[in-house]
Design a protein around this nucleic acid. Structure first.
Lengths: 244, 244
DNA sequence: GTTGATATGTTGTATATACCAATTCGACTT
DNA sequence: AAGTCGAATTGGTATATACAACATATCAAC
């Protein structure tokens, strides 16, 4: 094990954190292995126990280690698996799972916002929105019907051509510098209606999930409102819940 | 300002955290207000500076406060809007919204785990599980039907009486020291079946959401598997998505 | 063999103290 | 009026120590 450098300007507890993290990355310490006890660490490195304690506490709050009183401190199982970035568009989400996705643009038009959309997007009564309706498919099979509403003010130069081959999030990000920061989403069970069943080639009244999402930019400006119908027989929504 | 209670079994730093959090919630301290300096806090409460420091450090890592060296420690701008604690049991979640909730225990028994549950809970073939079926109501109206499976090994002393008046998470936490750390959850649309429709007093075939959840402890040991049916006409699942 | 006390090791919390580093602000100088 | 210096205040880090709470192994007594 490397030792801390007392001459370094870096805090001792910080160096100790690095040393332990490094040993885990090098697999000198594997998941569920006990790390040296606090007393061993402070004797070995010539620091006080509080300093070792601080380094370990920090790694515990980061989820790298876990403690059990009276037993010791152990390496947590890799968290990578549990980290699902859940602010991805549909395309990115599916690609992640290694599936071939395609999107067909069904409708693209500029229109006045309804009262409800005005509220949700925090718009004045004279501001227009884009309405973008797209059909999502995986391996050629329809999967979801998505309608997005975006204030024209945010991306006036948006055209149907831009959306033709690329994902909405990608276009908004690269062409207009719009980056989603957070979103509110609700999920409800619904039965698909006439139009939806025809488009998605499923029977009318079949089960589906309705996702209603409001996405915001970093400065808390609403970026888009999306209503999406996902086929219940193909799609299962997965999320990871974490303790505060 | 309330003072810490030296006779309390709760750690001093923990009490101090609560006191500061409380003052923020009561708006005695508003965003960007400075909180008392560490030295003031330790004199006022009669604790050492390290203890005050520990309380503050903890709140800083939680994002409640932020520090500026040489200037002081300040209340962070409210994250509340974006912070949905999504690892709450049903009871806590509804109470947060100010609704009156009740739970009726329909069934409580010890049984052998199915193959599938053995896998999900990482159990050996001889290990038993508790099956807990509960009906959730809001204002006396049935709302959700929840079936939880928990390894007997984790809470052998669990009884129906314990669950009678308290929430499952509360009992597991306080009586057995089991604290949920993270969970995987899937959501699907379903039509309620015969049994479910009768219990929940809705029409057979009505729309509902099926939540399947696998909850883990901090050491990545599976704690419970839950299948819950939520009435679609009453329940809308809300989540907040954040950028990585 | 089982039980129970004891010793030892672990983390959890807390104190008292010390010095360092960044900021603020007033007093003083120019 | 502007700049400079230094004292005071704030958080940042570190030490040495102590006792509590919990877990586990060991060994003696039954």
């Amino acid at each position: 094990m490397r030792k801390v450098d007392k001459e370094s300007p870096l805090p001792l507890y910080y160096q100790l954190k690095d040393i332990i993290s490094e040993m885990i990355e090098n697999e000198e310490l594997k998941p569920d292995d006990p790390i040296p006890s606090e007393r061993e660490l402070c004797e070995y490195h010539g620091v006080s126990r509080m300093t070792a304690n601080k380094a370990i506490t920090s790694l515990v709050t980061e989820g790298v280690l876990y403690r059990e009183q009276g037993r010791g401190t152990f390496v947590a199982r890799s968290k990578e698996k549990h980290q699902i970035s859940n602010l991805l568009g549909f395309t990115e989400e599916m690609r992640r799972r290694g599936l071939e996705v395609s999107t067909r643009l069904l409708s693209f038009r500029k229109k006045a916002a309804t009262k409800r959309l005005q509220q949700e997007l925090e718009l004045g009564s004279d501001q227009e929105i884009f309405e973008i309706i797209r059909l999502r498919s995986v391996s050629g099979e329809p999967y979801a019907l998505e309608t997005a509403y975006i204030p024209v003010a945010l991306c006036a130069r948006l055209t149907a051509e831009l959306l033709d081959s690329r994902s909405l999030y990608d276009v908004l990000n690269r062409e207009f510098g719009l980056e989603a920061d957070y979103a509110y989403q609700t999920i409800e069970p619904v039965a698909v209606n006439d139009y939806e069943s025809e488009i998605m080639a499923i029977r009318e009244g079949a089960l589906a999930l309705l996702f209603s999402r409001r996405t915001y930019l970093r400065n808390n400006v609403p970026m888009e409102v999306t209503k999406a119908i996902y086929r219940g027989d193909r799609y299962k929504y997965e999320i990871v819940l974490k303790r505060s």
